[in-house]
Design a protein around this nucleic acid. Structure first.
Length: 314
RNA sequence: AAAACAACCUGUGUUA
């Protein structure tokens, strides 16, 4: 348990090398890694987009006589889907069932999310029906993944259908579910409705958070409704919801794509004054904006500032 | 509290 906790800590810090060295240290001391040890490592490799390495660890598990469980399979599934390897993901799913690991709600959610993010909404929906039939009931995470999938596909009808089913099934929406629905509305340019939904959230005892507002602002910026987006920024403060770097990045991007680089730069300064630290995306956005506007002195200056702030250009 | 699942930002505004 102590080693597993340590390995988990390294994995969370993206220190996979250190995690592996702990693994070999365990071997030196004659401590046998268990399924949790291996799954922890497999999960972080999957998250890092290194499914091949994750599979190598899986093979090693088998060699040492340790069987994967549903956690292990779910982590690998995620890795396959992240790389768009749909068929291998589905093969893995079948393999999991054949090996006698019953999928639980988390595993189903990972499968549904993977299908959604690979554009397979039909299949994702039918998986949600199947799980229910098998007595594994969809939860708010399941519904949110589906709503988000329909939102990204520009399918408001689908998103609303899932939302209604969620309510009918007595599942309480949380801030993620609401935010996904806000996104669905924004993507079909129903900004007034999105605004109303955000207002409703507070009344329903589920106050919007920074991501909710960011989603709304992004939708407005993409539609060229920058003035409205700026108003939303101002309103966030009143709602006790702090803008973060992403909030500003979206607005900076919107302004510079609308050829309003000067205002973008002012907002960039304002961001710093308000104590929101620019990140690498902020700088990339500004640099892009300047260059796009045919300005060449400013980006060089900004690059200098960036280095002073201890940020590495990527 | 030893492990797995859902929502937001830049990069060529990509499903015609």
């Amino acid at each position: 348990p102590v080693y597993n906790a340590l390995i988990n800590g390294f994995c969370r810090d993206n220190k996979i090398k250190e995690a592996f060295s702990l693994l070999s240290q365990m071997a030196d001391k004659g401590i046998k890694p268990n399924v949790i040890t291996y799954s922890t490592i497999i999960n972080s490799l999957s998250d890092a987009g290194k499914v091949e390495s994750a599979l190598a660890v899986l093979a090693k598990m088998f060699v040492t006589g340790c069987s994967p469980n549903v956690h292990t399979f779910t982590s690998l599934l995620k890795g396959y889907f992240m790389e768009g390897r749909l068929f291998e993901a589905l093969d893995l799913w079948n393999q999991m069932i054949q090996e006698g690991s019953e999928p639980n709600v988390v595993a189903y959610n990972a499968l549904i999310h993977g299908l959604c993010s690979n554009g397979r909404m039909e299949e994702a929906l039918s998986v949600s029906y199947n799980m229910e039939r098998k007595g594994c009931y969809p939860n708010v995470t399941t519904y949110s993944a589906l709503i988000d999938g329909f939102a990204k596909a520009g399918n408001l009808v689908g998103a609303s259908m899932v939302w209604n089913k969620m309510i009918t099934n007595g599942c309480l929406p949380n801030v993620v579910a609401y935010t996904s629905l806000v996104d669905a509305l924004c993507r079909v340019f129903m900004f007034n409705q999105a605004h109303c939904l955000i207002e409703k959230m507070a009344a329903e005892n589920c106050p919007p958070n920074t991501v909710t507002f960011n989603t709304f602002i992004k939708g407005l910026c993409c539609a060229g409704k920058i003035e409205w987006a700026v108003k939303v920024l101002e309103q966030m403060d009143q709602d006790g919801c702090l803008p973060n770097a992403t909030t500003y990045n979206e607005l900076l991007d919107g302004l510079s794509k609308a050829n309003r680089i000067k205002e973008a730069f002012e907002l960039f300064r304002e961001m710093m004054e308000k104590g929101v630290e620019p990140n690498i995306v902020t700088y990339n956005t500004m640099l892009y904006g300047f260059c796009h506007a045919g300005m060449f002195k400013e980006p060089l200056q900004l690059l200098g500032e960036m280095l002073l702030m201890g940020k590495k250009p990527d």
